[in-house]
Design a protein around this nucleic acid. Sequence first.
DNA 1: GAGTGCCGATGCGGTTGCTGATCGTCGAGG
DNA 2: CCTCGACGATCAGCAACCGCATCGGCACTC
Lengths: 225, 225
Amino acid sequence: MRLLIVEDEPRMATALQRGLVAEGFTVEVAFNGPDGLHLARENSYDAIVCDIMLPGLSGYRLIQALRAEANWVPVLVLSAKDGEYDEADALDLGADDYLVKPFSFVVLLARLRAVLRRGVRPRPAILSCGDLSLDPAARAVRRGDTEIELTPREFSLLEYLMRRAGDAVSKADILHHVWDAHYEGDANVIEVYVGYLRRKIDLPFGRHAVQTVRGAGYRLATDGG
Amino acid sequence: MRLLIVEDEPRMATALQRGLVAEGFTVEVAFNGPDGLHLARENSYDAIVCDIMLPGLSGYRLIQALRAEANWVPVLVLSAKDGEYDEADALDLGADDYLVKPFSFVVLLARLRAVLRRGVRPRPAILSCGDLSLDPAARAVRRGDTEIELTPREFSLLEYLMRRAGDAVSKADILHHVWDAHYEGDANVIEVYVGYLRRKIDLPFGRHAVQTVRGAGYRLATDGG
DNA sequence: GAGTGCCGATGCGGTTGCTGATCGTCGAGG
DNA sequence: CCTCGACGATCAGCAACCGCATCGGCACTC
């Protein structure tokens, strides 16, 4: 397992390096943001351990840059900050885990292993299909540059379809995940809401992202229609 | 997105439920370990939020039981303990993330979203014979680059033939698997539907994937005709 | 009380599944 | 090579179903 540590504090950096090498990892170290980004671009690491406060380029921006290039290498963020919003921000930005300094090395190891076990994340923080994108955290949907307003129910329906983009999703599945498991009503509500969705994300743009699969359910086109 | 909360403290459980429902999740609650395990087995959740200290069956055991059954639903663990080894244990046991009480709801949300984002659903293999391919999950059939629309019955007939590509499949087998085990009708339906299939996947392309084996049934050419 | 989101009911129209009848084809035996 | 019977292909037509739009009422919020 090959790791990249991005950490400007020399003592912390070497301590981490020694500990992780002793655990059998192959470790490289960058002491500032730009170097870290460069190494991450040029090499393929199994995971990156990254401080937030970095000279030249913050950890946030580093993750953002990688994710923008569709590089989904797992990133574990270290930070001296402890405001809760920092953590939420880091995760929504595409970090895979977050540790507040001071942390225990044992915990770092466990979280690192958990992150490695999961491997490369298949999907970014923002779901997207072609020019259609949905940000679960911001509760925002856009078609290209146009922001689209959805009601809560419409939003969860689209979110579920987007998470399973490309699959034909049965109405029973939709009822269970978007409505309630014990929902007893008519499956017709789905048709109604699919209709609403299409009226907002497809028709005005002459697209067909939400496809009907007769007898099977619905499918969201992976290319957004 | 459908969640299961396993939490014995009623106030905590309802607080979580309300907060998550307000965020647009579909939420179910179990107040003890065995109930939680039962629900998790019977239903397909997008994620589980699970307390560690539970009456009847600890959160650890719950995860262990699920993982032993090859159920990889993402699990986010909550705990009042704060010993570092607890956290390491939980992650090594197969939990996907870990929060120590008291935690902030914003952080829970962010971590939950991170966990959901990772949700890997192993895609069933795509069946293919030559340039003919069938994707059971997407319910899509293509000949080369051309997408072909099939009705549900046509689709399951082709799927069955493709799963047994190269074999001569008797009509009795087909009736049994594509129609109903107790189907009492005329075996002529098969001939009719084989006709429909050929009209869609063979004739327009001048191919002969669906071959008649007189007296024995039908065979799908492994090379797609 | 106006506005918004949600959901059940109803009705229309196209699609699908199936049947029964007819037509075509294969191959063994004369 | 021809005949005939059995098997398979095709066709038209009907009934049930499915997807979709629309309307009206209910609950909640502002």
